[in-house]
Design a protein around this nucleic acid. Structure first.
Lengths: 221, 221
DNA sequence: GATTACTATTTTGTATACAATTTAAAAAGT
DNA sequence: ACTTTTTAAATTGTATACAAAATAGTAATC
């Protein structure tokens, strides 16, 4: 199971409700749970060997974050978006990511630089070996590194939130090795612009990166 | 009780848990519940004439949104920020609001224009009569109108989320009539720039507005 | 045969109960 | 007087139970 960079491995400590929340979040991010799919409370309860109460809490929190939606019918569902909605979400994500790049460009230091570079070389390695899962993980780490470089956890939080919401849709677009390599090369240009420490350039470059990413995602969905 | 523009008046329909959630959100936004204050589950339960279960759900959702935090000690608390954290939150809010203004400037239509203008005249009226509560409400409506003008509900959602989180801190800064009038006049300049339909200008103007807002908030907290 | 009405079953929301922690308080010892 | 230990109280997390609502399925009527 893919492990996002967010959850520190203090996994055994949390409450059942939190564990279920995290587990579902990951499954959605990775695409095991597909958009539009219904999540059954009792089903999840017995699957996780718990009662409905913690399941309910997990679902409630996830809907509050917009990862799940409690539609017109009963039950909660993995958020599913029309192309129009997807376009809006990506527009918003655009803006957030661009803002992150802009801020990061002005606050770079040795540590954050190296973290971004490390993540990027992991992306390159994964891309060249054509390992899709590894690339997805490395890609997450790369963007996380940029978020961290902003030095602003709140900015990072919303960026991450959008990343989670769009996870299932972005995942699809990496069909073959060429897609991975193209994405990784795109990263490289972005890095150069962020490292130039010119916020306007960094912002524009991220914008371009995200536009490309969106176009591909839209094609694949 | 102040009624934010978000909750349509279908108030009797929702579940107890949602009503509690909304009620607490409003109380926090208005400043009845002050940052750092502890929210007692059983206390809230009997206050709302319900059991702990729906209260728990409400609190859980609010912490998922970052309005409440479940600190080191037990219990959940109204989010309280250091000046450093506050600065970061406002920085993020800056970026979001600026992005909203930028998008809104490119998508204005007759309806959204008039909604913004209506909200602004309500602000002016409230400011001139020195009605603080009315101004707070009108101010919310004004910013909501801009969010709506983006035509992007997801953008609007995160903007609103930040607005809720910073509510208690922004509320404090409106001490006397002069503050209200200054804020309303500031709105007017912002409107002019958004209505110029030049996204760069609109974005910069919003940035200035938010910077001013932040400086005042920081002084008051 | 299609539509309406009714019944049954699932599902949700809330309440209550209980066990496991954690904080606070009291008591004992140094 | 100040720790340390023990005990008590409060609080959290989870389980179970139940009532209300919603969907689906079946029967009945036109």
């Amino acid at each position: 199971m893919l492990k996002l960079a967010t959850d520190q491995n203090a996994e055994q400590k949390r409450s059942t409700a939190r564990r279920i929340e995290q587990a579902l979040m990951e499954e959605i991010a990775v695409g095991e749970l597909i958009p539009g799919q219904r999540l059954d409370e009792v089903g999840l309860a017995e699957r996780f060997g718990a009662s409905r109460t913690p399941v309910r809490e997990a679902l409630s929190r996830l809907t509050a974050q917009g990862v799940l939606v409690s539609g017109e019918k009963r039950g909660v569902f993995v958020a599913k978006y029309t192309r129009e909605e997807l376009s809006q979400i990506f527009e918003a994500m655009h803006e957030i990511e661009a803002a992150c790049a802009r801020i990061a460009a002005t606050r770079l230091n040795l540590l954050t630089r190296s973290e971004i570079e490390t993540a990027q070389s992991a992306c390159m390695t994964a891309a060249e070996s054509g390992d899709r899962t590894a690339y997805l993980r490395a890609n997450e780490a790369f963007h996380m590194a940029i978020y961290n470089a902003t030095g602003n956890p709140y900015m990072a939080e919303i960026a991450l939130e959008f990343r989670r919401r769009t996870g299932p849709f972005r995942a699809k677009k990496f069909a073959d090795k060429e897609d991975l390599i193209a994405s990784a090369q795109n990263h490289q240009e972005l890095i150069d612009d962020i490292f130039s420490e010119d916020s306007a350039t960094a912002s524009k470059s991220m914008r371009d990166h995200m536009t490309l990413s969106f176009m591909q995602a839209l094609k694949a969905n």
